[in-house]
Amino acid sequence: MTTLIAILLDGAIYASWLFLVAAGLTIIYGVMRVLNMAHGSFYAIGAYAAAATVGWFFSGEHGNPYLSYLLLVGCALLAGVILGVVIEQGLLRFLMGRDEILMVIVTYALLLILEDATKLIWGVDPYFAYQPYRLLGISDIGDILRFANYDLALIAVAVFIGLAAWFVLNRTNKGRLLRAVIHDREIAIAMGVNVNAMFAATFVIGAVLGALAGALTAPAISVTPGIGVEVIVLAFAVVVVGGLGSIGGAAAGAVLVGLSRSFAVHIAPEIELFVIYGV
């Protein structure tokens, strides 16, 4: 029973992280039909911005340490909005309607450019922002299991974002217009929907979600060059399993991959990596 609880909790924590990473990717594809290879760079830049800012915050007396959580979210919002607006308005809007393979090549080029940009800005040394991770403490489950409360909080954040996305798409006028664009772009244009504005807003939201995933992950990892490339591969695995363009599918894919990996880690760790791609 102890092993089963550990598998379920580990799987839920990993699934919540996967969903946070994949949500922005699947939203952008669902609306714009752009398979955004640069999404991993949004994650990496969000992580670097958050780690650098939190490191500065704790390097001196800057007030209540719990304000560091606001800094994590603020860094993600700022990085995501800037990246989203610049890339969508400065590049992608001129390529909309082109072959999807061309968009993959263009966003892959962006991935390479942004990977080097992060090295130019933050260097190649690792960044650590462990203070917010430790701040929430540890919970004991039974007499054996111990989990960081920060990891458990990520589950709540992923659930909140998933429910918020569902509510916006299904219970608001803007969400219904967005679904109209998804299902039939030409008719939506004919009915007077500003599709270009929808595309811009969608790309910014996707970029913010990618940066938010990186910022919230930064306290739990060592932020180093290359994390964006590693993440985009896992994000593709999740959205392919769940169905490109579906928030519900991304959630289902994240849970399936997360639990499968957790079972492998606890029972047969030598096949951990295979299990993710096997699914």
Rank of each mutant, 00 (worst) to 15 (best):
residue 79 A to K: 01
residue 24 G to I: 07
residue 174 K to M: 12
residue 77 L to T: 10
residue 264 A to N: 09
residue 159 V to F: 13
residue 262 S to N: 09
residue 11 G to F: 12
residue 135 L to P: 02
residue 96 M to S: 06
residue 48 Y to E: 06
residue 196 N to Q: 14
residue 236 F to E: 09
residue 61 E to K: 02
residue 150 Y to C: 08
residue 145 L to V: 09
residue 63 G to T: 06
residue 10 D to Y: 10
residue 101 I to A: 09
residue 272 E to C: 00
residue 263 F to E: 06
residue 132 P to R: 06
residue 278 G to P: 01
residue 138 I to D: 11
residue 184 D to Y: 07
residue 58 F to H: 11
residue 136 L to Y: 08
residue 274 F to H: 03
residue 20 L to I: 11
residue 97 G to Q: 05
residue 150 Y to L: 11
residue 27 I to C: 00
residue 40 G to P: 04
residue 167 F to I: 12
residue 145 L to Q: 07
residue 232 I to H: 02
residue 239 V to H: 08
residue 130 Y to F: 15
residue 43 Y to H: 03
residue 155 I to D: 05
residue 260 S to G: 15
residue 173 N to T: 14
residue 165 A to R: 00
residue 6 A to N: 12
residue 2 T to V: 14
residue 225 P to L: 10
residue 149 N to W: 10
residue 112 L to K: 01
residue 15 A to K: 05
residue 44 A to Y: 03
residue 101 I to P: 00
residue 36 N to E: 09
residue 83 L to P: 01
residue 117 A to S: 10
residue 106 V to L: 05
residue 124 V to L: 05
residue 179 R to F: 04
residue 226 G to C: 09
residue 170 N to Y: 14
residue 9 L to A: 11
residue 1 M to F: 14
residue 259 L to P: 00
residue 68 S to H: 08
residue 192 G to C: 09
residue 251 A to T: 07
residue 170 N to C: 04
residue 41 S to Q: 14
residue 269 P to G: 07
residue 196 N to S: 14
residue 176 R to D: 08
residue 105 I to N: 00
residue 198 M to I: 14
residue 210 G to C: 08
residue 275 V to Q: 03
residue 15 A to W: 07
residue 269 P to I: 13
residue 94 F to L: 10
residue 45 I to L: 15
residue 248 G to P: 06
residue 259 L to N: 03
residue 106 V to R: 01
residue 40 G to Q: 10
residue 220 A to R: 12
residue 60 G to K: 05
residue 174 K to T: 14
residue 85 V to C: 03
residue 203 F to S: 02
residue 75 C to R: 00
residue 215 A to N: 03
residue 96 M to R: 14
residue 187 I to K: 09
residue 159 V to A: 13
residue 232 I to F: 01
residue 103 M to K: 02
residue 39 H to P: 01
residue 5 I to A: 14
residue 194 N to P: 01
residue 137 G to L: 06
residue 220 A to T: 13
residue 238 V to L: 09
residue 56 W to D: 03
residue 130 Y to G: 00
residue 188 A to F: 04
residue 248 G to F: 13
residue 266 H to T: 10
residue 67 L to N: 00
residue 11 G to R: 04
residue 57 F to C: 06
residue 27 I to Y: 04
residue 186 E to P: 00
residue 70 L to Q: 02
residue 208 V to H: 00
residue 178 L to A: 05
residue 62 H to E: 11
residue 154 L to F: 05
residue 110 L to G: 07
residue 140 D to R: 14
